[in-house]
Amino acid sequence: MQEQVKEILAQEKSKPPNILKALLLLQEQLGHVPVEAVPVIAHTLDVTTAQVAGVLSYYPDLRVSAPGRHLIRVCIGESCFANGCGRLLRTLQDSLRIDVGETAAGGRFTLETMSCAGNCALSPSMIVDRDLHGRLLPSQLDALLDHYR
């Protein structure tokens, strides 16, 4: 892993080192930022482990463990709230049998919430991986998830 991390980080050459960019890059390639890699990351970037930990623990998008194969993010922003994102979320929790922040058995789906997908005119919205879905009705969810199964 050490070598792989170093290789990936070789692409991130900001001066002074940019920890956030480096971690995003790692996450893009590894799916998450393994905690065990923090010392190598710090050393490669020439910063301290504390500095890496500070950034890694601050940003909601950075994850220290691998998510499921598909990441579902339900928007709970105000427009979606007004348009019933609560029901959407409950339906998903029931059908996947998981809570927000958890990964479904089999590791297929991880369920998360997000704040505004910028799709408010088509609320309620949800993002699966990189696909944005709008004007969602709870009744459509099963078919939609089937698409990713």
């Binding site: 900001s14 002074p16 080192p17 940019n18 920890i19 956030l20 960019k21 480096a22 995003l24 500095q51 500070g54 950034v55 601050y58 940003y59 909601p60 998008d61 950075l62 997000m114 704040s115």
Partner: peptide, 26 residues
């Protein structure tokens, strides 16, 4: 183009600058 990492307060201008510098968006 610098991409954020899901923190709302990073829209606040100084937190945003911290974030561009690669630090926690405080």
């Amino acid at each position: 183009v610098v991409e954020g990492a899901g923190s709302y307060v990073c829209g606040e201008e100084t937190a945003l600058l911290e974030s561009i510098e690669g630090r926690p968006g405080v």
